[in-house]
Simulated scan of single mutants.
Amino acid sequence: MKKRTKSIFFILLFSFALYSTFTNVTNLSLSDFDDWMAAKFRGESLDGETLLQKNQDLSEKSLKIKNAPQTYVSSAVIEAVELLEDTIDFSQYPSHEVVATGYTAGYESTGKTPEHPGYGITYSGVNVKRDLYSTIAADLEMFPLGTVLFIPGYGYGVVADIGGAIKGNKLDLYFPTVNDVYNYWGKQTLDVYVVEEGNGQLSEEDLNQLNEDESLQVFRSQMTQ
């Protein structure tokens, strides 16, 4: 009897150690998988919003996304963008046709992991951000650092970064997660509007001032509802 009790004790101890190692390495819990599997078997794929949220949660954890603090989710930003487009006449600004793709700070876009010292930091030195004014990558010969563009369906983008494949009329638009890229953007050819040409520099203070513009706070309130 004592031998059997001792065996059960060691089995439980081993199971606990294995579970602890698993959660530390993957940043996932068994409940995450239980919820995901239950949703699959219940056919919740028909309930897009519920399953999308679960898949986003799992993807963010499994990729160990550790971006700079994000206040708003992309879906809410896009709702505010739609209001902006209805309110402001952007045709008054010079336009350029571009091919715009979405990217993240993660390895799949930048080749950097969260442990990399440059993870989430743009060429300009500011942290990636998805907000009323988001950080984007561009060809600096076409759009200098600090240039403010309005991208229909995305919102205001501030040129803060570069990329090896971002040449000429190509843009990379920042999103917090891979799911956001797939669900809200992908790759699009469209006209963007040059609201303000940059001077070749961009600081965190500059970006914060743009996002604190009092005239735009009514749109920010839409993001937090």
Rank of each mutant, 00 (worst) to 15 (best):
V158H: 04
A80W: 06
S62P: 01
S75Q: 09
A17E: 05
A100C: 11
N179Y: 07
E204C: 11
D161W: 01
P114D: 02
D213T: 09
A76H: 07
V98C: 04
L58D: 05
V99W: 12
Q56K: 14
D34Y: 15
Y174M: 12
S203R: 14
L173P: 07
F10E: 06
Y174V: 12
T87I: 03
G111Q: 03
L58S: 03
Y103M: 12
S91W: 10
G155P: 10
V159W: 15
A160K: 15
T104K: 14
K3G: 01
G198Q: 05
I121F: 10
Q201A: 12
L84C: 13
Y119K: 15
N24M: 09
L210N: 09
S74P: 06
E204K: 13
K66R: 10
A68H: 07
F22E: 05
H96G: 00
N183G: 00
E212R: 10
N183W: 02
G120D: 01
D47E: 11
K6Y: 08
G106R: 07
Q188D: 00
Y156R: 15
G155R: 05
V98R: 00
N208V: 05
T101C: 01
R4K: 03
T26R: 00
V195D: 13
G168Q: 07
L83E: 12
A100V: 01
L149G: 00
D32V: 13
W36I: 14
Y156P: 06
I11N: 01
K40M: 03
P114T: 04
I166C: 13
S29E: 12
S59D: 06
Y174I: 11
S29W: 10
L149W: 10
V181T: 02
L173M: 08
Q217F: 15
L202F: 08
H96E: 08
T104S: 08
Q225R: 02
L52S: 13
R130I: 04
G164R: 08
G155K: 04
G106N: 10
V195A: 09
G157W: 04
D206K: 08
Q201Y: 14
F9I: 08
A17I: 14
G164H: 04
G125E: 12
T189W: 01
N199Q: 15
S74G: 01
T122C: 05
D89V: 02
E197G: 06
T104M: 12
D131P: 02
D172F: 01
S75Y: 14
D89M: 05
